[in-house]
């Protein structure tokens, strides 16, 4: 079985895995980084969102054979101490209900706000539409992205 060298949250990891293993399961089962969640496995729900070279990416579709040498950031590496403006906004607005989808939501929002520093509501809704929240905390997600944008500007 091949060994892959991964750069995750600024640290190097060597992982032995089949080439078709998605990053999601390497993070969760091999590296014990369980903040990245499994929701659908087909890139439809966004629960597994991580940053790959700065872009929000569905880790359930990203297999080992292509991920080597890319800069990967997970929810665990977004900040050392929950101080990222998006995390702070999520706390301030008290977004989560069950909370399961929220690390994916936070990762999507954090990548989006780098691309668009001053988004309007429609742009926020559009950018976050790839992430399902079954508890439907959507009003608060929208508000928290606005608050995070203010914090980042």
């Amino acid at each position: 079985m091949p060994i892959y060298k991964l750069k995750i949250n600024g640290q190097s990891h060597s992982v032995e895995a089949d080439p078709d293993t998605p990053l999601l399961w390497v993070l969760r089962d091999h590296l014990n980084m369980v903040g990245t969640k499994f929701g659908c496995g087909i890139g439809q729900c966004g629960a597994c969102t991580v940053h790959v070279d700065g872009s929000a990416t569905r880790s359930c579709l990203l297999v080992m054979s292509v991920v080597e040498n890319m800069e990967i950031t997970t929810i665990e590496g977004l900040s050392d101490d929950a101080s990222h403006p998006v995390q702070q906004a999520w706390k301030e607005i008290d977004v989560p209900q069950c909370g399961y989808c929220q690390s994916g939501q936070i990762m999507s929002a954090a990548a989006f706000l780098i691309q668009n520093k001053n988004p309007n509501r429609e742009e926020i809704r559009d950018a976050m539409s790839g992430n399902i929240c079954r508890c439907a905390s959507y009003n608060r997600i929208e508000k928290a992205v606005e608050v995070a944008a203010d914090k980042m500007s």
């Binding site: 903040g35 665990e76 706390k91």
Partner: peptide, 11 residues
């Protein structure tokens, strides 16, 4: 606030 908020937002 939700008592688990810090754990949720840090994964």
């Amino acid at each position: 606030s939700n008592v688990d908020i810090d754990k949720i937002i840090t994964g």
